[in-house]
Design a protein around this nucleic acid. Structure first.
Length: 563
DNA sequence: GCCGTTTTCGGCCCGACTGTTTTCAGTCG
């Protein structure tokens, strides 16, 4: 169905791309559509439910785009988009994804050489036809070919664990305490495009140390160096200690956040750049060794990196009303792990030990039910036997194991184990693992029917997405949240780097509606338990406070909540 | 296209870097 926030944002963003490649409109109109798309995507409320007045109240959406959103919700598109789409080859906007290729380049190549696609561009560059166009030369041709090869090699973004590996490799040649990873990595996004690092060391020293570990030095500068490492792009920006704070803010972004921050600086009679703040009259320049002092000068508290997305955080910060975000210290346990009884690697004893090492009060044992044959899931007898084992382990364990299950939601919406079995367990997670390509209505009904079961406490990985290959299944999340709220069912934040499910806009929506969220690593082996940090980061991106997160309850409160 | 306790018109974040330039446009972050 057209009209979900994601659909609307996609149409608006497509409009922005088409406007870009026509090359006729100014960049500000393009940005207006992009910003509107961003706002819709981050909106906790479905825009399909808002009237024009409520839409215009969203920053970045005026009466013009409000009407277009209404049209998208009603018809799936809007007239200006349809008209523009008819004028431009479908394959043209994809050219914008190439590194070094922007709207002006696309427009010019299209007009002068009839280049409409990446394939066209490749052919033209190979046959050396591009250098004939004024403003292009030999270097540009080889640059295009390089970009095309790179684009084809890595069309997907990094998962968090892959990003961690790249960061670790680069960090191994940097001096501890002299750098900070910035960019979308620091903001905690579910996937990461490239790695950005701010360094206080000397460029020459760092460049020399990077060469042996890099696949390729893309370019080496005094201010900035770009390398490819483990196949991924890493940008390092050099700064002196005095400007570290402003440089870190600049490189952490997001882009939209930076634009708002700079606009705020202008309102204060200041000009913000990556080196500091300049007074517009008099020209006195102020530098900041850390972020907090720069924020303070703008009249703001330190805004946590995870929420720097221009989704209302600046307004809330100005009002002194930022939420207190949940942190690692508040987490008392892991609410989704598997054991060697099914497809996991750890025994109950090992899990209890690993939990104690992490300082956990509890771990929820949640193996698959037998209906998921591929994992050798537990049947009723298996659950009973595991329950006895859990009691035995708990007698000597500091970290208490909770008896649970990740029960399958079957095609007809029933659950993979009978109620009498589920009723004996402390906490029940219900998840979909099969029939992932059902129609939206069918999938929604399946899940609602599972939520209607009183024994179900948590809906596991609610959208079913899997990086890099599987998209979220089609689901009326609005309805699911409504019913989950009514039944007091928690939604899971699955912290596996391959799932990261729910994603942050949905977490924010759930939080705003007063739902509880449960962080689970879905660990199958010991190292996976560390993924809890990804879940906490996601919760922070969704503006969650400790009170929004199930895992911050102590064991007794948790069991009371579940009963 | 959005926005407004200086503005309903005329702004809209700012700097580094590259390639193609002989003074700058385009792209990127």
């Amino acid at each position: 169905m057209a009209g979900s926030n994601r659909d609307v944002a996609e149409r608006l963003r497509f409009m922005a791309q088409l406007l870009e490649v026509t090359g006729e409109e100014d960049v500000f109109k393009v940005r207006a559509y992009e910003r509107a798309a961003q706002q819709v995507e981050g909106s906790p409320v479905p825009v399909s439910e808002l009237d024009e007045k409520a839409l215009v109240a969203i920053p970045g959406i005026g009466s013009g785009i409000a009407k277009k959103i209404a049209s998208i919700v009603r018809t799936g598109t809007f007239p200006e988009l349809s008209e523009l789409k008819a004028k431009i080859p479908d394959s043209l906007p994809e050219l914008l994804k190439l590194d070094g290729v922007g709207p002006k380049t696309v427009h010019r190549l299209w007009m002068k050489l009839g280049i409409e696609s990446i394939e066209d561009l490749e052919k033209a560059a190979r046959s050396r036809r591009i250098r004939a166009v004024k403003g292009f030369g030999e270097k540009k041709e080889s640059e295009f070919l390089r970009s095309i090869a790179q684009y084809r090699a890595s069309a997907t973004r990094m998962t968090r664990d892959r990003a961690d590996a790249v960061v670790a490799k680069v960090a191994s040649v940097l001096t501890p305490g002299t750098f900070e990873v910035a960019g979308s990595y620091r903001r905690g996004k579910s996937t990461v495009g490239d790695i950005d690092i701010v360094s206080k060391e000397s460029p020459r020293a760092v460049n020399a140390r990077l060469r042996p570990i890099a696949d390729e030095m893309i370019n080496e500068g005094e201010q900035r160096t770009s390398v490819r490492c483990l196949g991924e792009r890493v940008d390092i920006r050099f700064t002196d200690i005095g400007s570290f704070g402003s440089m870190l803010i600049y490189l952490t972004g997001s882009k939209d956040f930076n634009i708002r921050l700079r606009a705020l600086a202008i309102e204060r009679g200041l000009k913000l750049n990556e080196y500091g703040l300049e007074e517009r009259t008099g020209g006195t320049f102020h530098t900041f060794p850390d972020e907090a002092s720069l924020f303070a000068t703008l009249g703001l508290p330190l805004i946590p990196p995870e929420i720097r997305e221009d989704r209302g955080e600046i307004e809330r910060a100005l009002a002194g009303d930022l939420p207190v975000l949940v942190g690692p210290g508040a987490i008392r346990g892991d609410l989704h792990v598997h054991t060697s009884a099914t497809d996991g690697r750890m025994t109950l004893e090992e899990l209890a030990g690993a939990g104690a090492e992490r300082g956990y009060e509890y771990i929820l044992i949640s193996d698959h039910s037998s209906t998921l044959h591929i994992t050798h899931g537990l049947d009723a007898d298996g659950v009973t036997a595991q329950g006895k084992e859990i009691e035995r382990v708990n007698r000597t364990s500091v970290c208490q194991l909770l008896a649970g299950i990740e029960v399958d939601i079957m095609a007809d919406g029933s659950l993979g184990l009978p109620d009498r079995v589920l009723g004996d367990l402390d906490i029940v997670i219900a998840s979909v693992h099969s029939g992932l390509h059902e129609e939206k209505d069918t999938m929604t009904r399946r899940i609602l029917s599972a939520l209607a079961n009183d024994h179900v406490d948590i809906l596991g990985h609610p959208t079913g997405r899997l990086f890099p290959s599987r998209a979220a299944y089609d689901l009326d999340m609005d309805r699911v949240m409504e019913v989950a709220k009514g039944n007091r069912t928690a939604l899971e934040i699955n912290a596996s780097p391959y799932r990261m499910d729910l994603d942050d806009p949905q977490i924010r929506e759930a939080r705003d509606r007063g739902l509880l969220l449960s962080i689970g690593t879905d660990a199958h082996e010991r190292e996976d338990l560390g993924n809890i940090s990804h879940g906490i980061t996601l919760a922070r991106r969704g503006w969650c406070s400790p009170g929004d997160i199930l895992n911050t309850m102590d064991r007794d409160a948790l069991l009371r909540w579940a009963s």
